[in-house]
Design a protein around this nucleic acid. Structure first.
Lengths: 383, 383
DNA sequence: TACAGTTGGTAAAACGATACACCTGATATT
DNA sequence: AATATCAGGTGTATCGTTTTACCAACTGTA
């Protein structure tokens, strides 16, 4: 009798209870064929689910032999023959960025579920590193690639590896200019729209937007989303702060992202009239803003409301806990894996775009703007 | 004319300037041999750096042919023949934990530098997932494994895959009971020793220690380090709080780790006499403590000093910024890669232990204890 | 009966690199 | 002079699959 689900029984879960299973003595397809008294071809057919070529008799014999010998096809051999590996290459600026980390994590989970393994490449946005990685892909037989937040300035870059099945998360098909490309995105404009709407509903009228340079699709779209949403509410969208610093491609931990927030804080505080709320491009920048305002004695949310985007898991840790717009990471990861593995329906497929809807997560960094902004009180009449 | 080194030229860095380099038409070793008018054996020797078998003449001819054809050996074929893949399997509870994320990142960088790729497996400490992953390793020809913070309750677990070259980061050789195993560790006891010393020097005498259940080597050692260091200073070590909750093996984001901190906060505050400082097992717990004290109105570091371990990069973001004990992540990652790739010197090698020294990072969460702390603070309640 | 079609099965040639065994001259050793 | 050693190089079996071509029975039909 076996109690399952407890931590305790991890101990007695020795992998192969019987014989030692060193790689040295792994069974081959030949062994299986011999044991089942059939040809290797039949075993191969069995392994590839071509059951219509098999009689029920042989089928069960093969199944038994496989179970008996604990046969697992040698992937190297299979791959050498077919040219394809059950591996998804995952290109990401850096998993140290908590949002990317979560995305990579979820993609890995989805890939495993689909029977694929994952090759990780942290490029640091270093083109040399990325190129080297991509060049190696063919040599390893990898045909499926998911890239996260590639630079939007590299039109046609990936076309050199046109034999890959490519899915880009956080990217624009037009930016990458690639014949067959699927994208998976958040509805970035809607996301910022929700942020603006939330602040507007709280009574804010002077809203700033902070972003670092527009090097990715999401950065471009969120800014344009800000402008649109502000126009829709007939508000002044001129308080958009685009920091031009921090170009560093070698951004290890996105700690610099936080620096962006730090730097932006003074810029925003200097704006006149001072905004009552800030929307940050993402949570990292929002946290940077938050930390800086705090040490400068500007109370959040009393003196200033802040809202981020992503809902990276650390956002719940800040004080006050960060209000933010959530990306449905798991769903996006699953979609990316699904799309990259889907046999391209039409041969000259133009590619697809999958867009996910964001969700407002209300925590503690947004509040009604303070009345006592003396100079502007006059403006407020009945509304 | 080409300007290099600037960010601007990322755009015009088309990988293969000349012919399209689809996987379809990649050059094989045979093509190279033909082009250089030598035998395939010689090319193979060249590729494997067996230059002593080659004359300078042939050597340059081969080099030229390789460059000309942009030859890259097919890894699948190589692997099929040799049985070994240039891949390191990386088993980790979850990269969403920022410390693990940094460790995985650094290991990946080190592996790439050594010409290896990295297979990622987030096990969530789920033995089923891990077993499946490990079982597949042989089929893919992977022979090198780095595992991070494995459970210390699984003696002999890895012996089923004894053909692997295994390095464990944050683990005890004796715990895993594996014949040939190298470990890479922080000197955990010294780390806590430094924390105690730092607090002692500031004048603290009542110091608490908070940890979640002792399921890994580091957790065990840090606690014992705490007890030793306290004894060395002739202090009372009875204020060690081992939380028995949060056993969940399915710890997605180590957000739960923060929960541990949250829960511990009330336990610690209830201690009598109340400690003036807390050492947390790691930064995540420290941040949880910090956040909870803050919302309870207990000022850090005025009323309570807090110190963590790891120096995960987010620790600099908290307010006040967290004082902590740094692990030299890059160095540890390099060591792990180096050790796993090192051909085992002695055949019946007993394995090696590589231990790194921690470093105190002083930020803003530790201060001198308040003299009147006991009476002053007691009025306030934790909810 | 003879023919095509289907069903269930096999033999053997690849895939691309490695490594073993072997070969040929030249030089060194006795 | 005979032999050993060595540097430089080649031919080819082999790794474990997949896949193509082929075959032998059956079945039903004209």
């Amino acid at each position: 009798m076996r109690v399952s689900g407890t931590l305790g029984d991890l101990n007695d879960m020795p992998p192969k209870s019987g014989s030692p299973t060193d790689a040295a003595d792994r069974a081959t397809i030949q062994d299986v064929a011999k044991a089942a008294s059939v040809s290797v071809s039949s075993v191969s057919n069995y392994m590839n689910n071509r059951f219509h070529r098999l009689g029920t008799e042989t089928r069960t014999r093969i199944a038994m032999a496989i179970a008996e010998l604990d046969f697992r096809p040698n992937q190297a051999a299979r791959q050498l023959k077919t040219g394809k590996a059950r591996v998804i290459a995952l290109v990401v600026p850096s998993i140290v960025n908590p949002f990317n980390g979560q995305m990579v994590f979820s993609i890995e989970q989805a890939a495993v579920k689909a029977g694929y393994r994952v090759h990780l490449c942290n490029t640091m946005r270093d083109p040399k590193l990325e190129k080297e990685f991509l060049d190696n892909l063919a040599a390893v037989g990898v045909a499926d690639l998911i890239t996260i937040a590639p630079l939007n300035t590299r039109r046609g870059y990936y076309s050199a590896w046109s034999d890959l099945s490519i899915v880009a998360v956080d990217a624009n098909r037009l930016d990458l200019k690639l014949a067959r490309l699927d994208t998976v995105n958040l509805d970035h404009e809607a996301a910022i729209g929700m942020a603006v709407e939330h602040l507007f509903a709280l009574g804010h009228r002077r809203i700033a937007y902070v972003t670092d340079p527009l090097i990715t699709h999401s950065r471009v779209m969120r800014l344009s989303g800000f402008k649109k949403a502000m126009k829709d509410h007939e508000l002044d969208d001129s308080q958009a702060v685009v920091l031009e610093r921090h170009q560093s491609a070698l951004d290890v931990a996105d700690a610099q992202m936080v620096e962006v927030g730090r730097d932006a804080a003074s810029d925003v505080a200097a704006l006149s009239p001072r905004p009552t709320a800030i929307i940050a491009f993402n949570d990292m920048i929002a946290l940077g803003l938050l930390a800086t305002f705090r040490s400068a004695g500007i109370a959040v949310p009393k003196d200033m409301s802040i809202i981020g985007v992503d809902d990276a898991w650390i956002s719940q840790l800040s004080f006050p806990a960060l209000t933010t717009i959530r990306q449905p990471i798991e769903a996006m990861a699953s979609a990316a894996v699904e799309r990259v593995l889907k046999p391209n329906a039409a041969p000259a497929n133009a590619g697809s775009d999958t867009i996910f809807l964001p969700e407002l997560v209300i925590r503690d960094t947004c509040a009604k703007p303070q009345e006592d902004a003396a100079t502007h009180v006059r403006k407020r009449h009945l509304e």
